[in-house]
Each structure stands twice: as structure tokens, then as C-alpha cells.
Simulated assay, not measured.
Amino acid sequence: MSRIPAAMAFIVLSSLVPGSAGAEGEKVTAVLELFTSQGCASCPPADEALESFAKRADIVALSLSVDYWDYQGWKDTLAEHAFTSRQKAYASARGDRQVYTPQMIVNGRVHVVGSNEEAIERAIAEGPAPSVPISVGMMGDAIRVSVGAAGKGEPKKATLVLALYERHVKVPIERGENRGRTLSYYNVVRRLRPIAVWRGEPLKVDLPMAEYRETGTDGCAVFLQEEAADGGPGAIIGAAHVEKAGESW
């Protein structure tokens, strides 16, 4: 999480006026990352549960398909090995080494079974919720991300991460544990990458639309994530999202 690629399609603009946080919107109370697989018979209920969270304006809900079930005869069509690595990095940072599907990571801090909505709601309520203000909105042919300043006693460094996602994908499964079913996935992450380093000061970032058109996505989330002691992904301390309206952004 600490390294930012040299060639990135983003523009860092002048800092915001101290104390400002950009356009106001509903505060995000949680970032949910569901690690799932088309080859896992226990995952469809979790994929369905994610739909209800994805509909909430105060939740950034993301589906990340892993590839370690592929050996059972069905190669997950949405999986990225990078998502498997991310899930394992979370487990390493927590120190519990628990990697399974369906697994829900709440605000980069705790994990629960992804189909257990009561446990997910409890983890959200017990917090802490992301507190650094972030807003996203259209600015010409770009999406503008406005990040506020750190509050008193809050962290002063984190990585700003971009997640591009498709809101709904249907996949017919031909082999494996879910053979013969057509499964629905929500907020399917197609690209996940760092876009800037935030150091506690207000910041603006413009994201050109070319990347969105290239991936064919209709949703965008950004979140601030601390680095864990072992260098892996840590707590998420700020987040926002925006979705395509109709045929155009």
C-alpha cells in the first residue's frame, strides 16, 4: 500500500482551503469488502446479502472474487489473483491467518462471515466508522475527489485507493459446486489501485473518465486506507462513492 505506481492517470490539484471538505453528501459509515468465489457453494447467500448493503448510500459495498477455488473445476470469471493477495494480506495484518469464503472485511479492521447480515451490522455499529471527510462528483470530463483534513488525534497518513466496479453482473456456472446456477454479483470490482498519498492535509484529485470507459464500469469508490504494521492494508478512515446515472456519467 505504500508504493504508488509512477505512471498513473490522475491529476493532483491544489489543496483545498484549510477546514473545507468539498461537496457535502451522506456520510459513509462503512466500507465492506466481500471476498467471494463462483466455486464456493456457501457464497451465493453472501453475494445476495451484499445487494442490500450496496443499495445503501451510507455504505461502500465491494465484491472481490478470489481465485483459490478454481482448482475444483470452474475458473471464476470475475476473479483476480490480486484480490486473493489482498485477502491474505488482511489476515496477515490481523495476525489470525483466517482466509475463507465468503469473508466480509469491515472498514479494513475486522472480518465476519459474509452471509451473516446480523454480524455485519454489528461490526458496522461497533465501528469506528470512517471519519476523514471525502466527497466525489463530476467536474467536466473527470471525477473529482475532495479529501478533507485529519481531525485532532486522527492519523496523518494514508493511501487513497480507487475501486472501479460494475453494479450488477450475472454469471451462469457450468461446473463446480454451483454447477447449473446463474449467480448474481453486485458492485463487482474490476480495478483496484492506489492513486495518491494523503498526509493529513486537504487534497483534491481529478480522475479522467478514460479509465472508466476502458473498464466498462458504472460505479466508483474511493477510500483512505492506513498501512498496517507489517505493510499490508490497515484501517479504512475515509470513503465515498459515485455511480453512473442512466447512459452517461
Rank of each mutant, 00 (worst) to 15 (best):
A91T: 03
D206V: 03
E247Y: 09
E126M: 12
E80M: 11
G219L: 07
T182L: 11
L32H: 07
A239G: 08
L224A: 01
G73I: 05
C220W: 07
R179M: 06
I195E: 03
P172Y: 09
I134K: 07
G39F: 08
G153P: 09
R122F: 08
K156G: 00
E166K: 15
L203D: 04
G176I: 03
Y212K: 07
A23Q: 13
E247K: 11
W198R: 06
A9N: 15
V113Q: 02
V132T: 14
A196H: 10
V12E: 15
S146I: 00
S37Y: 10
Q87P: 02
F53A: 05
I134Q: 10
N116R: 15
S63K: 04
E201V: 08
I134Y: 05
L32V: 04
P155E: 02
A150G: 03
A240R: 05
A89P: 10
S135D: 13
F223I: 00
T101G: 08
V106G: 04
V147S: 07
G219Y: 09
E154L: 08
G153Y: 09
Q87E: 11
A150K: 02
A9E: 14
L32S: 04
K88I: 00
A79M: 06
E51P: 00
G246D: 08
G232R: 13
L34P: 02
E227P: 00
R109P: 01
R213N: 08
A21H: 15
M138G: 00
S135M: 14
K244T: 05
A125K: 15
S15T: 04
N116T: 00
Q225K: 03
Y212N: 00
S65A: 15
T77I: 02
A46D: 08
L207E: 10
E214Q: 14
